[in-house]
Amino acid sequence: MTAYITRRLLLMIPVAFLVSVMIFMLLRLTPGDPITILFGEEPDPTVIANLRHQYGLDRPIPIQYANWIGRFLHGDMGRSLRTRQPVTEAILTRLPATLELGLAALCFSLLISIPIGILSATKRNSVWDLVGTSFPLLGVSIPNFFSGIMLILLFSLTFRIFSPGGYVPFKVDAGQNLKHLVLPMIALATPSLAINMRFMRSGLIDALGQEYIRVARAKGLGERAVVVRHALKNAFIPFVTVVGLQVGALLEGAFITETIFLWPGVGRLAVDSIGGRDYPVVQGIVLLSALSFMSVNLIVDLLYAFLDPRIKYG
């Protein structure tokens, strides 16, 4: 197991390197002079030359990359072009709101998808089965900006139960915080809820068809014990992988959900920065998102190896 973890970690290095090169090169792909992109139109050629030198843009591309990644590893991602705020600081101040929304959506998704998935797999051809088979297809087909707008229309403009958007920090007013959280949480959770439900159902159906379930039933075990103690335990192994992959969906979903619900998180910062051509901020957020997505995938893989005793890793 230790050898496997080491190998996976070592394998992550070239991939992380490639990812950072791609993100670095994306800014170079942008049509136009990087100075104009980074600092706006500047008529004075000496000012341009100075800036070019100051930011090392007169150096060869590989050296520019090395400087950029070196600064990143020290936590320096440059400054926002619009606000002059350090990018690291801008991201860190918005991270709590995003984490709150993401974790709430993940919990909501699990709380709904697991029970319905189980009911749908064990009570075939019931109402639960209908929900368990039709919702997954519908849930992955509705873009979260449309479900978000429909939720606002229904629950805040028609029935006035929840506010249509905004954010109140938990420390200031916990009740208001949760009231603002409900709608964006549902909108963000919908696609992952759909996928989780589908995999819970199929995983359990798969597990229930195995030999050891027949053995458990044959020795007279009650249906409840068969499902809970034998089938569910094994159905959860593939489920963990799928839930891990949802973290990526939650990350990108946050971009749009936060924009609709005026939620002051990292996703909305990214969207505002893209609109305002604030490249250092965009670059920083994309790099951090990719690195966290990679880490989550690694953790999921390791967990999978740990959970499934049949899989041996050298």
């Binding site: 991939v15 490639l18 990812v19 791609m22 994306l26 792909l29 969906a249 990108e252 971009f255």
Partner: peptide, 23 residues
């Protein structure tokens, strides 16, 4: 390795980055 690097991005995020860079 290139495949792994492309898969390291959440899908929509990669699409957003590419379009915002290319215009």
């Amino acid at each position: 390795r290139v495949i792994d690097a492309l898969l390291a991005f959440p899908a929509l995020l990669l699409a957003i980055s590419i379009t915002s860079a290319l215009g």
